[in-house]
């Protein structure tokens, strides 16, 4: 098939551009551990709150400035245990979440902490809080009539 010379140059340029994008994404994904949240661990929805780790919701300190935050997203709120999360500045927090009912979202606006919360599977996302403040956590997947009131916070100080 005949292709105009300038179109050939354009297609080589365009395909090269896409290739470079993919290379940047691929290398940063697989060599620097920037995979999108893709946890695989199944969990039984029926007796969720008797099943570890969701039998003890809230923050677990793993190391100095490293925490695990166990929570569920339910209609219509986030269950973070007895109180909302608070961590010191500079903490790395591994959020582990699932849902006892429908699909929800977990998002901290202004950060890359963004994942789907699907019943029956645990999803993870990790974020390091270098700036103090009260971060909003909201549901970004439509889950029902009270979807817009679903929120909690994580306080960094």
């Amino acid at each position: 098939m005949h292709i105009h010379k300038l179109e050939k140059i354009w297609l080589v340029f365009g395909i090269g551009m896409l290739g470079v994008f993919l290379l940047i994404l691929g290398i940063s994904t697989f060599s620097y551990g920037l995979e999108p949240p893709s946890a695989h661990q199944a969990v039984n929805m029926e007796n969720l709150y008797d099943t570890p780790p969701f039998d003890e919701l809230g923050l677990n300190k793993l190391n100095d400035k490293e925490y695990e935050a166990i929570l569920t997203a339910y209609v219509f709120g986030f269950n973070t245990g007895d109180e909302e999360f608070t961590v010191p500045v500079g903490s790395t927090v591994h959020f582990k979440a699932t849902s006892p009912d429908v699909v929800h979202g977990f998002e901290i606006p202004g950060t890359n902490a963004n994942m789907m919360v699907v019943p029956g599977i645990i999803n993870h996302v990790t974020y390091t809080f270098d700036e103090p403040g009260e971060y909003l956590i909201l549901c970004n997947e439509y889950c029902g009539v009270g979807h817009e009131i679903m929120q909690t916070t994580i306080t960094v100080k």
Binding site: I3, H4, K5, L6, E7, F13, M17
Partner: peptide, 21 residues
């Protein structure tokens, strides 16, 4: 096709490519 002048087309698509980048 080589004889056809498509310099403007080429400039346009390169601008488009630049915008995408």
């Amino acid at each position: 096709h080589e004889e056809v002048n498509l310099k403007g087309t080429f400039a346009s698509v390169m601008l488009l490519g630049g915008f995408l980048i």
